[in-house]
Computed example of a mutant assay.
Amino acid sequence: SHSSFGWEQAGAALAQKKAAMMDLGGFVRSAFPEADLPQLAYAPFPEIVPGVARYEDFSVNSIHVPANAKNKQGARDFVAYFYKPENLGAFLAAEGAIPPRNDCPPSKDPLVNAAVEELKKVVGTSQYYDRDTDPDMAQEGMAGLQEFMVKPERREQILKRLEKTRKRIFG
């Protein structure tokens, strides 16, 4: 019943060696006892269609200045300070997040460093599907993915439903 798990439950199954792999950020380490952290490793997303360029899911944590900020110059000064490589690297280290800059100091976490090196080899990145698209499309897409994981023989029906939803939302 893998499609009924949230990431926390799936992470626990991974830590208990009841699952083998997850497509998830470094924060999955919070599901692991300290002694088991060395079993975590980074694996690039596998090639599905030979010859198609490599891309990766890569979520970026960022800070922005709101358009209606009362102290825009103070906010800009903070953002300039925050995004200095050494400051950004220190902020991201606590979560084990991958820096969105390639000039941050190396992490103390070998998992982060492995991901940084692999990301240098890809053609492009995307954030998580459910964050990057219209919420209605995301909901239908996630439901379709869950259905496909359980019933792959329904692939064509799922794709037709997703295409219908895409046309309704995006025209």
Rank of each mutant, 00 (worst) to 15 (best):
A15S: 12
G74W: 02
L88H: 06
I158D: 00
Y55D: 08
G26S: 07
M21K: 14
M22H: 01
N71K: 13
V60N: 04
I169D: 10
V116R: 09
R101L: 13
R101K: 10
G25H: 00
K17M: 07
L24Q: 03
E34L: 14
P44V: 09
K84V: 02
F170H: 14
Q139T: 07
L37G: 01
A93Y: 04
V52C: 05
G51D: 11
K72W: 12
A75D: 14
P44K: 05
Y128A: 04
A93R: 08
E95V: 02
L159R: 02
P100E: 05
D77M: 00
A97R: 03
E47T: 13
S30Q: 15
G25E: 07
S4E: 06
E163W: 08
A114R: 05
Y55F: 15
M149S: 12
D23C: 10
A43Y: 13
A12V: 11
P110V: 04
Y83I: 03
V60P: 01
T125F: 04
M21Q: 15
C104R: 00
N113I: 10
P44Y: 11
F170A: 10
S59V: 02
T165N: 07
A19W: 02
A115C: 12
M149V: 06
V116E: 10
A53I: 08
Y128S: 11
F45I: 01
D57L: 07
Q127T: 06
G89E: 11
P106I: 13
F148Q: 01
L40Y: 04
K18N: 13
N71H: 12
Q9T: 06
I63P: 00
K84S: 10
E117A: 15
P99L: 10
A114Q: 09
G141A: 05
G11Q: 04
E95S: 09
K160N: 08
E163D: 14
V79T: 11
